[in-house]
């Protein structure tokens, strides 16, 4: 398991994270949510071992993350970043195969993972010609390939930084559902930074709400209190439960009082604000 206790991270004089404590257990999907600049990506970079905490401690299986050599860490956890640049015209299949790192990946594993991640049809396309969403799916497959053979008896961790940001709704569900079935298959754990709270509620087991580098709330992903969200995002929120659905939907609308209002007559938000609700 991954255990963070009172983790702080600073870059120069900028405080990115402070007093963050959380644990990720095997078989658990943890969704990290929060506004831009809340420290979600910073937290993920600490959890992945990429950046060492400036204070506090992060352990993987009880061993401080800094004591894990890069190659050994790579067999235990994969990271899918928000932005990956590639100036060389590799094919999608070749990029996925890079998940093997310095080792070769058997072709049947590649094929299975690419089907599993719904990118088999992209295999011979050049990465440089793929759309943002297609690239994201390719990198997801690459992360899964990285964890295709974790050391026996050890939990693999899949860390995803906004994995659905460029995906259409269909592929958002496909990717997160694939992450869940990967979990079920391997007994691994997923930590995903998500902006869509409804997706977090549907696919996450636990949610961690970050704001200003601190954990504001953590608990069951389908039970994030509306009050916490309104406070953290400065918006008004609705939690909608649909009979027969397993998870609630979260809908947001601008909090009219906080929006700038320059001209009373033609400002849309002003018009909305007078009525106290959107449309």
């Amino acid at each position: 398991m991954i255990e963070a206790s009172r983790v702080a991270l600073a870059s120069g004089s900028v405080r990115l994270l402070s007093g963050v404590s959380l644990s990720v257990d095997p078989g658990e999907f943890v969704a990290i949510v929060g506004p831009n600049g809340a420290g979600k990506s910073s937290l993920l970079s600490v959890l992945s071992g990429e950046r060492l905490p400036t204070s506090g401690c992060l352990r993987l299986d009880g061993r401080p993350i800094g004591d894990w050599p890069a190659w050994e860490l790579a067999r235990r956890r994969a990271v899918m970043f928000q932005h990956s640049v590639l100036a060389f015209p590799f094919t999608a299949a070749e990029v996925v195969a890079l998940g093997g790192g310095a080792g070769a990946v058997p072709p049947e594993v590649l094929l299975r993972v690419m089907r599993f991640a719904h990118v088999a049809d992209l295999a011979q396309r050049l990465y440089t010609t793929l759309s943002g969403g297609e690239r994201q799916r390719v990198h997801f497959a690459r992360a899964l390939v990285q964890l295709h053979a974790p050391p026996a008896g050890q939990t693999p961790f899949l860390l995803l930084d906004e994995p659905t940001s460029s995906l259409d709704p269909g592929h958002q569900h496909l990717l997160l559902a694939a992450a869940r079935s990967w979990m079920a298959e391997t007994g691994g754990a997923v930590v995903a930074v998500l902006h869509d709270l409804s997706l977090a509620a549907r696919y996450g087991d636990r949610a961690v709400v970050l704001t200003k580098g601190e954990v504001r709330w953590q608990g069951a992903a389908s039970a994030i209190p509306v009050g916490v969200l309104e406070d953290v995002y400065g918006l008004s929120f609705r939690r909608i439960e649909v009979p027969g659905e397993t998870a609630p939907y979260y809908a947001s609308a601008p909090n009219a009082m906080d929006l700038p209002c320059r001209n009373d007559n033609d400002n849309y938000y002003h018009w909305v604000g007078r009525r106290g609700r959107v449309l």
């Binding site: 990429e50 890069a70 860490l73 790579a74 956890r77 640049v85 590639l86 890079l98 310095a102």
Partner: peptide
């Protein structure tokens, strides 16, 4: 040659894939 292929993905991805 093989780690070089991984390295062209960028430093962060290379680290995540086990290359310092």
């Amino acid at each position: 040659a093989r780690p070089m292929d991984v390295f062209v993905l960028g430093e962060r991805d290379a680290f995540a894939l086990g290359i310092s």
